[in-house]
Design a protein around this nucleic acid. Structure first.
Lengths: 198, 198
DNA sequence: GTCTATAGCAAGATAGAC
DNA sequence: GTCTATCTTGCTATAGAC
């Protein structure tokens, strides 16, 4: 076997272990909160001992940061991918909202972990979260701009209202009732009626 | 002095100390999260030693529960009071939303502390928070029913959308820009245009 | 009611064997 | 890369003086 092949296999295995840790950490952070989640429990969920985590991440705070980065990356990718098909501006907005809600409500645990740490207070992590979130929400600003809405419509408030309604659904959504897709469509429909009437 | 008078004074003083502790705890819970906030810091903020808290509250969990009860009581009272004036259903909804957002965004820290503990996971506190919140949001269900909206409008989703947009504003609101009153009016206006057009 | 002192425990992180 | 063992620190809660 060539050295290149072996190196690729090692890299894949390493990635798996790291990803396993990320998922375990995300689950614990989500269900117990960052401070209450212990490195021992996270390690156990990933099938290793507490000390072994520190080979992959230098500290608990770095583990949280990695979860945030990965979560934002995944939902951003999903939303951007949903925009490759539709051309009509309203359909594009709807597609983005469906992707956003599907990933948030029934998607990966890493994405859901983003919701646990509310950007309150003034911790160092807050700055990071806020910046990442602003970048992501820029996607929606551009989608709203493309709608060519009548003057006087406040795109800023509009984005906050739409994304706020969607993000808050994380607190009340339970599987089995309405699907994320139906919720997203309903929210966009309400907005659409509203803004086309004005 | 009669015994009754002295007893009233004692009760008032006790209430002050207890309330001081509630505010201090709410501030720490809000800015650091429940698990990360220490009884030592809470006590110091209230001007006492850690051990002294346990004269007023039997445990840290009970302190959190007391903060939640008090916060829900305050915002419920404020919203119900805002409904005493207006008679028109839409004006009543707007008044309630203004009261909700003013208390949430610039009101008491005890109310704001309600936002920190997201109802994720399955902790015992989650059940309590969810029940208290459901009771409170019942006020808005009744306000929406009074609007006599056309059939086919889903009051359930409507309440979730409106309250979601408002509650999420807690994550982005910064004093100095738009006032809570203006934000509330904008959200209600959007809904109103939407629903009257359908 | 509040204090001091401390028991009892669990956490994050490190060191070195393998 | 992962393990075991452990250091150090900080926490909640209690006991008893005042």
């Amino acid at each position: 076997m060539a050295a290149g092949k072996k190196s690729a296999a090692v890299r894949r295995r390493r990635g798996n272990r790291r990803e396993l840790l990320l998922e375990a950490a995300a689950r614990r952070f989500l269900y117990e909160g960052y401070a209450a989640a212990s490195m021992r429990d996270i390690a156990a969920d990933a099938g290793m001992q507490a000390g072994s985590i520190y080979y992959h991440f230098p500290s608990k705070a770095d583990l949280l940061a990695a979860v945030h980065d990965e979560g934002m990356r995944r939902i951003s990718d999903a939303v951007l991918e949903s925009l490759e098909g539709p051309k009509d501006p309203w359909q594009r907005l709807e597609a983005a909202c469906i992707a956003h809600l599907e990933f948030l409500l029934e998607g990966n645990i890493v994405v859901q972990a983003l919701m646990q740490e509310m950007p309150t207070g003034s911790s160092p992590i807050r700055t990071r979260v806020t910046r990442l979130r602003d970048d992501y929400e820029g996607i929606f600003i551009r989608l709203l701009e493309d709608l060519k809405l009548p003057r006087g419509v406040d795109l800023h408030s509009l984005r906050l209202m739409l994304l706020g309604a969607m993000n808050w659904s994380f607190t009340w959504y339970r599987p089995g009732a309405e699907t994320p897709r139906r919720i997203a469509r309903k929210f966009v429909k309400y907005l659409r009626i509203s803004l086309q009437a004005s």
